[in-house]
Design a protein around this nucleic acid. Structure first.
Lengths: 106, 106
DNA sequence: GCAAGATACTTTGTGATGCAAGGTATCTTG
DNA sequence: CAAGATACCTTGCATCACAAAGTATCTTGC
């Protein structure tokens, strides 16, 4: 069931991380893995969707420690999307918490 | 995108509401609708899944104000599932918040 | 009594997306 | 040169929210 919870939030997580600096795909997997299970099979298709949508763009950087890395950079559009999704998340999670806490005025 | 956020949490919402008393389907739709968009096409299949899983059971009650209502009651198993999912939600949403807030130790 | 609207339940089909699994290529180290 | 870490990509499946359409019951106004 855990996997269902992530839906919609992974995109927000990636955009939020990219707001603070460029990252490459494999790095994002490792970063996010620290707090939730995630695999490359999730990230790479997501990055492709984001790029197709113009939310991020990418560039290749050679690495001394392995194959070339594809770095992702958030666009101005992407920052707007991130902000919007963050607000959605805040109000959504607050709504869930209200239901869990059983307040009369759900 | 909003619709994706709900995945997994609607089940938790329904179980949490049922923990505090029996409800019928249409009533659940109206209750949850107060804080997020939801339709019967989502709730009824969900109730069927929960019943098949033994998390809830149901009984019919005649109504003076319309067609008979199908009330749902949470089972002991259901209470255990609710508790488990609530904990999952708490830790999951905390993890998202940490990523959003950009703490070093994600 | 009958049409309209609210109440209440159900089913079908579609779309979105997380994930396992499998594949390719590069670099380092023994 | 084999093994393992690093890094990327793709395919197919499963899950589940939702629109849409359908059925039945009760009340209210004409």
């Amino acid at each position: 069931m855990q996997s269902q919870l992530k839906r919609g939030t992974l995109e927000l997580c990636v955009l939020s991380l990219l707001c603070r600096g460029d990252r490459y795909g494999y790095e994002l997997v490792n970063l996010i893995s620290r707090c939730m299970h995630i695999t490359e099979g999730t990230i790479y298709p997501l990055m492709k969707r984001l790029k197709d949508a113009g939310t991020i763009d990418s560039y290749i950087v050679e690495s001394q420690e392995g194959p070339p890395r594809k770095y992702y950079r958030i666009t101005d559009d992407g920052r707007a999307v991130q902000k919007e999704q963050e607000e959605e998340w805040r109000s959504f999670s607050a709504a869930i918490d209200r239901i869990l806490d059983g307040e009369e005025q759900i």
